[in-house]
Design a protein around this nucleic acid. Sequence first.
DNA 1: CATCTTATGCTCACGGAGAGTATAAATGGC
DNA 2: GCCATTTATACTCTCCGTGAGCATAAGATG
Lengths: 318, 318
Amino acid sequence: MAKTPTKAGASRSVDAITADLVAVLVAVTDGAPKIMTIAGGSALPSGPFEFTHRSLQTGLRAWVEAQTGHPLGYLEQLYTFADRGRSGDAKAPHSISISYLGLTREDQVGAGFAAHWSGWYDYFPWEDHRDGAPPFIAKLLTPRLKAWAKSADSSPLQRERWQRCAITFGLDNRDWNEELVLQRYELLYEAGLIPEANRGNGRETSVVPGKPMTSDHRRILATGLARLRAKIKYRPVVFELMPSEFTLLQLQRSVEALAGRLVHKQNFRRLIEQQELVEETGAMAADTVGRPAKLFRFRHGVLAERAVAGTKLPLSRT
Amino acid sequence: MAKTPTKAGASRSVDAITADLVAVLVAVTDGAPKIMTIAGGSALPSGPFEFTHRSLQTGLRAWVEAQTGHPLGYLEQLYTFADRGRSGDAKAPHSISISYLGLTREDQVGAGFAAHWSGWYDYFPWEDHRDGAPPFIAKLLTPRLKAWAKSADSSPLQRERWQRCAITFGLDNRDWNEELVLQRYELLYEAGLIPEANRGNGRETSVVPGKPMTSDHRRILATGLARLRAKIKYRPVVFELMPSEFTLLQLQRSVEALAGRLVHKQNFRRLIEQQELVEETGAMAADTVGRPAKLFRFRHGVLAERAVAGTKLPLSRT
DNA sequence: CATCTTATGCTCACGGAGAGTATAAATGGC
DNA sequence: GCCATTTATACTCTCCGTGAGCATAAGATG
């Protein structure tokens, strides 16, 4: 290799590759978080990057809109990686995948498309802690993680493994950290507890509940969820998922759906109001149980007014 | 376009492209933040992605190590974008750039390489607020931004533009937000105050001080600095830039160099200690002015112990 | 010894955030 | 019509993180 770090490749043969765009499209309907899938829920929507696209962002945007019939409000790049084994050649990556996170609403997606919405907790059942930790974590998962930790070669390695399990899954009386979606997925992969880990070796066993996806799509999905869970805490992105008018409880339910855990109602309202993220429409919610709630709309002005505007989560510890 | 969002491109002609890897390599020496540059400081080191690379990350890592003679401790993907006009064809992007942020130490880079270190505030003089806001912001920049805001078509657009200026540059008694590096760069670009904005139209004028770079490299650099300034607040990445032993003041100076603003000394120490990020080596710093300081080293254990470990910045408001 | 510089310990006050209590306003069953 | 239930909304209380400042210690230098 040339000693001078310059664009050395320009003078020799250039390795040409292809680029794919992969989308994690999220919606929340009635407190149920959804993601757009194709192929019967086994893959994320993806398509090739073409020369007609002016840029990656506009390429994906145009492309998604053609698929779903709805303009994407929010679109954010997630991660880029080189795929191996996708084009058959297992050694060298000849294809690059650029993944994006997009936020929409389910009702805005046109009918008659092959893509459909799937529940995101179908793919990550261990991520939903709204009713407390799912029982299978303690019953089924924890013993398997313990066994995996024990199977390490040396004693310090065993401790290190278990520490990692405890941190990512909130075991040993540690707090549950909802942002570690990707770390948990990767841990389960390494421990061989999900089907993706055992591909090719004959026994594609699924120890832990949760639907797998083709290729590394579930990993991309985990990346998207992690990003979104982190982002709702310091940017008002939840509103991209809400209808134009909503009650504060509906807003709270959406946040809880994304975060996978409950928030303290009064504190949540305090935060939303003191940040002036919403304004009253004047109308009240109809067909409700209990005392009717005021309807609110998002104040788009805050996006311009502030450099950072969050939707901090007043998380309950109980 | 096919209605079904599937890998439609697989069945037709595939648009092949090339991929470049671009690196933002950062070091801090004696409180001076540096970045690695090539071509006399006018470009970031970059090289083509080749089939021999097993993955993007390892590709860049091997590649940088060959250039600098030093293994990179920390490497993180920044952003991917499609380049236009680079291959001559201005319309369609045929090349993709994948940028990375890497952290090293200057003294660890081997000699005899064409790449060399440049001060990062040479490229972003408006970002260094360690001695208060640079005078040229008030004297030179603010009037130009005001003029640019005024030049908008409508009155609300003018107000919107000025609001954006005020937020990003902390004008009108707003607080300076050191994380908005990219937003500031893009604003200066839009306002036509930096050479990059006026390329091709004959007069490549530079209203504001600061060295330009070829292509969009200064934008990539801005992306890297923004990411780093944000990251030091919740991940202990500063230690990647420190020698194995250091005093707390040296650590503080490095943080200040990155953040571009001063921190409260006592509070900084309190944070570092209560987070148990460092441990005493037992030795004291030699050849110092004033009372000698204890030497510390980074406790690598914290990376495993905690999911999140920050180096929060106790920023002074004065 | 006086002074300068840096290191280090301690206190104080404010505000944000978690958590709980209390009250209001609607619906539906009996 | 009354009561249970559900949701909305208003307050309060307390703890602790954090910004800020004061005070003292420990070295060098003249």
